[in-house]
Design a binder for these strands. Structure first.
Lengths: 149, 149
DNA sequence: AGCAATGATGTATAAATATGCAAGGCGGTT
DNA sequence: AACCGCCTTGCATATTTATACATCATTGCT
């Protein structure tokens, strides 16, 4: 396996799982058919500009292991607390929240992985919700409105 | 000096200057009248959830020394590292990235100034890409999927 | 006052990471 | 074919970080 392939594999491993030491990384790589020593991995870690923190190794720009959330609040919970209103434009929904609450609301929605939602984008007090089409946006709007109360 | 005061001082030092080792941090603290051993600092670093990377110690959520980008990474580069999936809804593409990587991905895409992209919007782990129409969104989705790999 | 529990810290050392040195492979040039 | 330069990697070890153990101070309870 070439160095480049190994680097790609390291990035994947680091993004997907918690890796607490270079030795652990070495063992994970060995399981994937890539046998190198800790010295090489030390150089790789430096060259890939990985960070090591309380949760192990992470890529630059926070692509690492966020604090494990003991419990993700549900959409219903966050909307009853922070949701203000939903408006629809074709396949898009604009969800207003209280100030600063858009991120947790978007996270909660993402967590549900509803098939009627293609993706969400959060500002400060606004979440943009993209649906596949107008019809499903309508039904999602009704659903969210019920949750807001 | 109390532990709490020391922690505040550490946060300030780490935010303001490049600190490459716990011994260097110990010496900077000593200069500020705070004498502790490396062992205590090791515990402090863990308790403050500081990261150590190629540029030394940094606070969580990137409150540290970011890499000065000599060269803007290409869309291919950032997507191979941080891209997860692309989904299409009409003329819109929702690009999922690893946590916190949406901004640099959107920047790299903007930098290309592709005519098939009207604009982008970045959240935390989601980039919304607006295309002129459904057809060009489709071809852009295929292009981005190839880049993700 | 006495005692127990807890938190903070230092010492010494275990564990983890970085690096000097050497060797081998590869590609390009003569 | 031979040589050179560069890159990659392993080995051994230097350096850095984490932690077991012990000590001390503080607080709360009886």
């Amino acid at each position: 396996m070439s160095k480049q392939e190994r680097h790609n594999l390291i990035r994947q491993l680091v993004a997907g799982e918690s890796i607490a030491s270079q030795d652990e990384l070495r063992r994970r790589l060995a399981r994937r058919g890539c046998g190198v020593t800790q010295a090489t991995l030390s150089r790789d870690v430096h060259e890939l500009r990985l960070y090591k923190g309380p949760n192990g190794y992470a890529a630059p720009n926070g692509n690492g292991h966020m604090e494990e959330e003991e419990e993700q609040p549900t959409v219903g919970e966050v909307l009853s607390s922070f949701g203000l209103a939903v408006r629809q434009a074709q396949n898009q929904l604009v969800l207003r929240t209280t100030g600063g609450a858009a991120q947790p609301v978007a996270l909660a929605i993402d967590h549900e992985q509803w098939s009627d939602i293609v993706g969400t984008l959060a500002g400060d007090d606004t979440v943009l919700i993209i649906c596949p089409d107008h019809r499903r946006a309508s039904s999602m709007r009704e659903k969210l409105e019920r949750m807001i109360g």
